[in-house]
Amino acid sequence: MKPPAFAYHRPETVGEALDLLAELGEEAKILAGGQSLVPLMNFRLAVPAHVVDVNGLTELTLSAQRGGVLRLGALTRHRELERSPLVAGAAPLLAAAAPFIGHPQIRSMGTLGGSLSHADPSAELPGCVLALDATVVAASARGERRIPAGEFFASHFTTTLESDELLVAVEVPVPAGRVGCAFTEVAARHGDFALAGAAAVVTLDDAGVVTDARVVCAAVAPTPVRVAAAEKLLTAGLPGGLTEVETAVQDSLDPTPELKVSARYKRRTAGVLARRAVEAALADAEGRAA
């Protein structure tokens, strides 16, 4: 269980990194936290000829809130999402989801940019950035590109990033007014890959009426999925109560079975989790001042 040999590159600036990616293309893998790439290399499922280590790029560690946007550097570690007061205030969904990611040792090293680029369908952060309507900022020697989260995830472990592009930051709209959010998931053991997960973000007006809702399920499709039918029920005032959310999610999904669980299990679990996430997000929003 030792990784194969590779050529190692440690750029010191983003410009150097982008030049390397332009030159090496598909031959290179980007090393950030390494919590997915290194196991794949230890198993020799990934055999990159070149590894571009971005851990020296300090500008990718910087995060700041400007106006209504929280910009998180791609090298933001999961541990920082879990602990940072800035994230807790401006992107509480990410803070809520972070403790579900792997184990403490993984969260020390794993990064936001790495998790999104890896695009594991069962991962927490891809679903969260979709629920938050975040924007992924990708840079290449050709320039910078801003990709809405809804257009970023293409399939299992596949994004719309080009081989010469580096994910440099994620921009999250900071909630204004009565916005509530919640994340939940089910795994065989805490820290295992999720069997199903759900994130919800709801906005209430002063009268407590839902004006906007985003409901996302994870680990039930090749990418995280928004469930429009559940969102419509919420903005329609949930005429039939919360159970309708569960039913709408179950009717909308068509998961593929996994080794451990059937498609039926995933569909039913996702429905229950979505209902719980919506319920918690509504309670969170109601607790915020009108």
């Binding site: 269980m1 090393l31 390494g34 919590q35 196991p39 541990r79």
Partner: peptide, 22 residues
Amino acid sequence: HGVCGACTVLVDGEPARSCLLF
């Protein structure tokens, strides 16, 4: 491959799996 935790060390004070770090 980063599952068992036996190789955990501290890197800059944070726990990390030394089998997943180059």
